[in-house]
Design a protein around this nucleic acid. Structure first.
Length: 445
RNA sequence: GCCCGGGUGGUGUAGUGGCCCAUCAUACGACCCUGUCACGGUCGUGACGCGGGUUCAAAUCCCGCCUCGGGCGCCA
């Protein structure tokens, strides 16, 4: 559960002990990175760091073997070392315990000039950090983010299972775009034109129409938009849900429970990681139920804030500034429902009047997290929608055909995993929430 | 796609025409120090993104390129 060091079943490599598990009276071998060496003259301390934390190794120069002292204190920062010795209680040590070494081995030496400082004394810019992600993730903040991300994914899967949804995986290499509009990455597939998929939308609908009924997918999506912002990625992780015999309200219920479950799991199981991020005091799951504002109410409230230079009128999409004004006004997660039909995609079902759709967005005060709705399951309406959006229904025959064989009413949504993590942990840049982000200028590592 | 702002030792920064063979921190090297916990102290090594131009004089002004970040649009 990410709490390394408590009842760890496996620390690896014959009899290695995690630093956090070293108890006074034990004879242990600890292995990790040289975090720092503090040489006070007659006595020196090597701080050894591993995934579970840190431990201090003591070198008393007059009382120890010269070779041992030389090896230990000669190791450069971030070198990988293994230390065997007795663990003793020592109130003067940072963690209350200290290792008196009997043997020290330098397993892998690090260059003395590092591209960034894992001890965190000197900041590094995000691009320097991403270029050297391994070193960057030796900082406890980075480690914490990805341990929390893993816990979020675990909790999300569990919440979906509780909602009777089956995990699926759909293709990322596709012949046609999902919705038109957004830019796709073209690739060549054995001489045929193909694309990286922007969304599992159409595929998850096809599976919702099967006996699986309720499905979810956690997987990559690709968008070739040349945006350059702290909240966009060209390769992102989408958490998708689609359920047969669900309407948009049911879909919102599932959405809310999945998001809240993720927060609760982190609050419950990631205390140490939250402390590393200095969030333990303020972190709490969002209040439920999330308010459900209609689109019309949303634009009225935005206009009432007076934050925008120009008043919004019915039919406008919400500008970024408006989303922020509304987010500040609401102060927590919320849904925007009943969008004008014309600004939602063809596969979203309209309400009876045709003016409004069942489409909804789920918002965090900082940004949009989720987009969803009830889907159009009536073949005729669907084909009409394709044509209205300037798409050729023929190209999507693999999809539309299945609406001829009994397609139940269904609804679903897609949640940006990185945006969820970013807003949950108040990260200033979405790239912090991805190990190796892909953006307008970054293709490696 | 449109717009704006940056690039100075390994890292992060100060420096808006001469005061700069460039500031500070950290790292690195040497030396001193027996309880550090951002250990401390002394000394030292190390940098103006690339190319062109203006000027008596360019890190500083201009142009082009490369590169990074941000705002909008669009979206998750």
């Amino acid at each position: 559960m990410g709490l390394k060091g408590s009842a760890a079943p496996l620390a690896g490599m014959e009899n290695r002990t995690y630093t956090a598990d070293a108890e006074p009276g034990d004879e242990v071998t600890v292995a990790g990175w040289v975090h720092e060496i503090r040489d006070l003259g007659g006595i020196a301390f090597l701080i050894l760091r591993d995934t579970s934390g840190r431990i201090q190794v003591k070198f008393e120069k007059d009382e120890m073997d010269d070779d041992l002292v030389e090896t230990g204190l000669g190791a450069s920062r971030e070198s990988v070392v293994s230390v065997t010795g007795a663990v003793e209680e020592e109130p003067r040590a940072p963690t209350g315990v200290e290792v008196t070494p009997e043997s020290v081995e330098v397993i892998s030496e690090a260059d003395t000039e590092l591209p960034l400082d894992p001890s965190g004394k000197v900041d590094a810019e995000l691009s320097t950090r991403l270029d050297n992600r391994t070193l960057d993730l030796r900082r406890e903040e980075g480690q914490a983010i990805f341990e929390i991300r893993a816990e979020v994914m675990r909790a999300v899967r569990e919440a979906f299972r509780e909602a009777d949804a089956t995990e699926i995986n759909t293709p990322k290499i596709v012949a046609t775009g999902t919705e038109g509009g957004t830019e796709l990455f073209p690739i060549t597939y054995f001489g045929q034109e193909a694309f990286m998929n922007q969304s599992p939308q159409l595929f998850k609908q096809l599976v919702a129409g099967s006996n699986l009924e309720r499905v979810f997918e956690i997987g990559p999506i690709f968008r070739a938009e040349e945006h350059n912002t702290p909240r966009h990625l060209n390769e992102a992780t989408s958490i998708d849900f689609e359920g047969a015999f669900c309407d948009h309200n049911d879909a919102m219920d599932v959405c809310e429970s999945v998001v809240v479950s993720a927060y609760e799991a982190v609050a419950e199981n990631c205390q140490r990681q939250l402390e590393a991020l200095d969030l333990e005091a303020e972190f709490e799951p969002p209040e439920t139920p999330f308010p459900r504002l209609s689109y019309e109410e949303a634009i009225e409230r935005i206009n009432a804030t007076g934050e925008l230079d120009e008043q919004l009128v019915w039919g406008d999409d919400l500008p970024t500034e408006g989303e922020k004004a509304l987010g500040d006004d609401v102060g927590g997660h919320y849904f925007i429902t009943d969008w004008p039909a014309e600004i939602k995609p063809f596969y979203i079902m309209d309400h009876d009047d045709g003016e409004l759709s069942t489409g909804f967005d789920m918002m965090h005060p900082r940004m949009e997290l989720v987009s969803g709705g009830q889907r159009e399951h009536r073949r005729d309406h669907l084909i009409e929608g394709f044509e209205q959006q300037g798409l050729d229904p023929e190209a999507f025959e693999y999809y539309t055909k299945m609406f001829d064989y009994g397609m139940p009413p269904h609804a679903g949504w897609g949640l940006g995993a990185e945006r969820l993590i970013m807003t949950m942990l108040d990260l200033s840049n979405i790239r912090e929430a991805v190990l190796f982000p892909r953006d307008r200028q970054r293709l490696s590592p």
